[in-house]
Design a protein around this nucleic acid. Structure first.
Lengths: 334, 334
DNA sequence: GCGGGCAGTGGAAGCGCTTACAGCCCAGAG
DNA sequence: CTCTGGGCTGTAAGCGCTTCCACTGCCCGC
């Protein structure tokens, strides 16, 4: 953008740059005649103030960043959507960074940090030491899908209650041998596994160890091929993608879902509703998660003290057919 | 980030800011001893150069932007993923902007334009007049999922050939009465409809007018309820989400897919593969689309002249079961 | 023994803007 | 008629960095 500068506008309008600035931002008094001259000059030159100059002088970026591990799958897109929407309404641009397995993440994140007024960080995307360093530097930060790190705020959705409700429901279906697919010791997911295990314990059932796998359809498929050999009544999966993969694995092994084995997911992504069989899952308010993070971050930037506190959004258990065939379901309204 | 500045580093190291800058960037000669002093000062102060200062002095942002209509659904997330990955590897941050139906889009986009070295713009997200204005200002731009606008480059995936192949396939299935769901006069989609109509014409079939609807499951459902009344053999949909909605509508009306009516989508999103019945669709290389855009944009920023040319990526016709039940499909490997 | 060249360094001029401060002019008050 | 206080405007000091240019020694070759 080889744009014109405020100096050229000032010259063309026959005033000083200070006056141009005041006229454009509406700070300080400017006579109607001058304002009009400036307006015309701006129009003729197609002048747009350089964001760099403004930010440097104002000492703020009017932008904030969001860091996630990966953008694949529907999960992050939805959260990001809610986030961007609110951030935009608050007059802030949003910078994204996906870390994937890339090297040099700390440097990249620090670079990002110098471009924004605040940062939202997903789950265990970054090592705690780095989070501490960033928080200590005074950068406003909001954690997403995990509990708060010292010096930050956090938003996540409810895990334990939904996990318990899901487990109780599965037990009511008569399922007794459980398998868990997609274990990491990540914040969100480990909270679910803990609640599942506790609930099973209450019913005298020993919880199995979760089988690690990537949170993808392929990951679920691979894990499923292994898991299903032991003939569990139900496979509880860390998310919907894993569940869809497990269902594929079951088909591959000649097992019918849910007659031979039940499968459940988590998130309620679009495919969950349309899959065969339709997936029993837990719906997270993904957009609201992103929106809440944006609002919290804005408060921090405005000067609020980080409370080291976690905001928890409600989830819904969504019963469809993958957890047990004896349920009758009228077609869902879209 | 209440960070320290290059002045404090210089003072602590006992050198000038020019030397600090040279030491840090590796431009110009700096003695080993000095370099070490600077290194220590930087470490002690946890100094990170202010991106604002650097950018203002360098005259570049090392960032580029991407504008899309909406982030919902799997489509944009995938493209964005491919885009971000390449941009990051090229050392550029990425700013996103989703326009939705928001007011003040031109201002927001112009603001974005002052924050980046170049811009990727999706489909018909922005009015042509605005595109022209931006291009004229010298901003490097790449159009995505549409043909090039003067002064830009463009990337999209192949439409006409796939649409023809799909239509031929459907005719081979014995389908004769067609319905088209999800019409807009958007670049990508209208190319598909044109090709479908032409192909039908070759076979002596008159193409129906596409029924407009939002590109969502709900949009497809609503459109489907209307469309299916006339009893078409097949409903060709503008994308997979619309197709999934039409399938729901068919179920609602007591029609079996594909026995009573065939349905096809476009994009090959995850849900297409897992839906019941699995969706016949056209796979677009979504990530590669984003990646190609990022690379093209980088070339423009590096100084290449915009060619007003459109790069076209290949698509694949993916035959599953929603287009006709007589096909036998072994379970897909993930 | 002396000039040229170069490694190493500092001074200072921007980059494009905001804003504190000061100055000017004029109307209305005394 | 002078004084005072706004309203309006300009000057200039940053904001944090990069980099051109000038300068100082010092080593080498003649």
């Amino acid at each position: 953008m080889s744009d014109s500068t405020i100096y050229e506008v000032a010259r063309l309008a026959g005033v000083s740059i200070a006056t141009v600035s005041r006229a454009l931002r509406g700070t300080g008094p400017v006579s109607a005649a001058t304002r009009e001259k400036v307006r015309r000059a701006v129009e003729e030159l197609r002048f747009t103030p350089s964001r760099l100059g403004v930010s440097l002088a104002e000492g703020r970026h009017a932008a904030n960043g969001i860091v996630f591990p990966d953008l694949s799958g529907p999960y992050f897109g939805e959260v990001l959507l809610g986030y961007e929407e609110v951030a935009a309404d608050l007059g802030r641009s949003v910078l994204i960074l996906s870390t994937r397995d890339r090297a040099g993440v700390p440097e990249t994140v620090k670079d990002l940090a110098t471009r924004v007024d605040g940062l939202v960080v997903f789950g265990q995307t970054l090592p705690d030491a780095l989070l501490t360093e960033l928080a200590d530097s005074g950068l406003p930060m909001v954690m997403l899908a995990r509990d708060a790190h010292p010096g930050t705020e956090a938003v996540r959705s409810e895990n334990a209650g939904a996990a318990e409700a899901l487990t109780v429901h599965l037990i009511a279906h008569g399922h007794r041998t459980f398998a868990l697919a997609g274990g990491h010791d990540e914040g969100d997911v480990s909270q679910r596994w803990t609640a599942v295990a506790r609930t099973l314990g209450h019913h005298g059932i020993t919880a199995p160890r979760p089988v690690e796998c990537p949170y993808t359809v392929d990951g679920g498929y691979e894990a499923g091929l292994g898991l299903l050999k032991s003939g569990p009544d139900v496979v509880v999966c860390a998310d919907d993608q894993v569940a869809l993969g497990v269902i594929l694995a079951a088909e591959e092994l000649g097992l019918r879902v849910p007659d031979d084995v039940a499968v459940t997911g988590w998130d309620d992504i679009m495919a969950a509703r349309h899959s065969r069989p339709a997936l029993t899952t837990v719906r997270q308010p993904l957009r609201e998660l992103g929106a809440a993070a944006a609002r919290l971050l804005d408060e921090l930037i405005a000067g609020a003290e980080p409370s080291d506190t976690t905001r928890v959004l409600a989830t819904d258990l969504v019963i469809r057919s993958s957890c047990g065939a004896h349920q009758v379901h009228p077609p869902e309204e879209p």
